[in-house]
């Protein structure tokens, strides 16, 4: 397929990418948005979002993303399915490879976000889809009336645990420390729930049983006492944080030790003309609203950059003078 040429291309379709698309579209830059594998981003995996301003009674994550998408499209953003396999920043315009397609773009806005982190156990990998999950709203249904475990201690872990009590007979939160990182309101909610119990100071050593192709327990070790025990559960939800989706940019853009892209002066990355917004460059705030805000910044930065490299159109007065 012939190369497409664009002024602004945005990778990612979460709050950051779609806000960048909205602003670029309204600046008449006809942005191309490449959705990525997890179209709509992390909010597609949530239920009610209660902290996005403007929605007094909250809004469902997928509904919020559908609205953002339609709003960007209304102003001319083109949103396409696809996953970027390679980028080349060594020449101008930049070149992106998406499947068999080639896209040439003057500016690139990276909004690839972050994906759920796993523990990294071989047994976890083997049992993915057979009791191990990173998506409570997707897979909670399979554990009606069954005991399950949630690993983690942050807001998302507690939120998942609370959500899963709708289905599970009991939810055990497994946390490495003796206190949660989660916000006070979330902790109060979780600890008040009669179906939730906590295994403090504990790590997961193994998930059982790959030979049976199904989860029937997890082996825990108490980090204070060293005591090991097996907890009988039918499912394990891993909610231990996120890792930025930056592997395709490795070696081409400055990143920190965790893989997060480093930005300066707003949304600028280490390559002029490449901007980053949302969770891919933020491991501190990681909110839908901060992602959306940084998406706006990236669009404005890209617009100004385009103006700086393209000489203004020759006016009549100027051409008469020449």
């Amino acid at each position: 397929m012939a190369a497409q040429r664009r002024e602004v291309t945005i990778i990612g379709s979460g709050p950051a990418g779609l806000t960048a698309a909205l602003y670029s579209a309204r600046a008449n830059l006809k942005p191309l948005v490449i959705e990525g594998l997890e179209a709509g981003g992390q909010l597609m995996l949530t239920t009610a979002v209660e902290n996005f301003p403007g929605f007094r009674d909250g809004i469902m994550g997928p509904d919020l993303m559908a609205a953002m998408r339609e709003q960007a499209e209304r102003f001319g953003a083109e949103i396409v399915r696809g996953h970027v396999h390679a980028v080349d920043f060594s020449s101008r315009p930049f070149v992106l490879t998406v499947g068999d397609d080639r896209i040439e773009t003057q500016t690139l806005i990276i909004a690839t976000g972050a994906s759920a982190k796993l523990l990294g156990l071989p047994s976890e990998r083997a049992l993915m889809g057979h009791g191990v999950s990173t998506c409570a709203t997707c897979d909670g249904f399979f554990f009606r009336g069954k005991p399950i475990a949630v690993v983690g201690g942050g807001d998302s872990a507690l939120e998942e645990a609370i959500f899963l009590t709708r289905f599970a007979s009991q939810v055990t939160l497994v946390h490495r420390r003796d206190a949660f990182r989660a916000s006070k309101i979330m902790q109060d909610k979780a600890l008040a729930n009669p179906k939730i119990v906590v295994e403090w100071n504990s790590e997961v050593l193994e998930m059982l049983d790959p030979a049976a192709s199904a989860v029937n327990g997890i082996v825990l070790r108490n980090l204070k006492t060293g005591v090991q025990k097996t907890l009988a559960v039918d499912g394990v939800f891993v909610a231990i944080g996120h890792t930025p989706n930056t592997s395709v940019f490795k070696g081409q853009l400055a990143a920190d030790a965790g893989g997060y892209l480093i930005t300066h002066d707003g949304s600028r990355t280490s390559v002029e003309g490449v901007f980053a917004c949302g969770d891919v460059q933020d491991h501190v705030y990681r909110q839908a609203i901060t992602a959306a805000g940084s998406g706006c910044m990236a669009a404005l930065d890209a617009e100004r950059y385009l103006e700086s490299i393209q000489p203004p159109p020759i006016t009549e007065a100027a051409s008469a003078a020449s």
């Binding site: 889809g129 057979h130 009791g131 199904a214 039918d234 499912g235």
Partner: peptide, 8 residues
Amino acid sequence: YMVRGIPT
């Protein structure tokens, strides 16, 4: 087929 997660 012990499917407990989707899409599989």
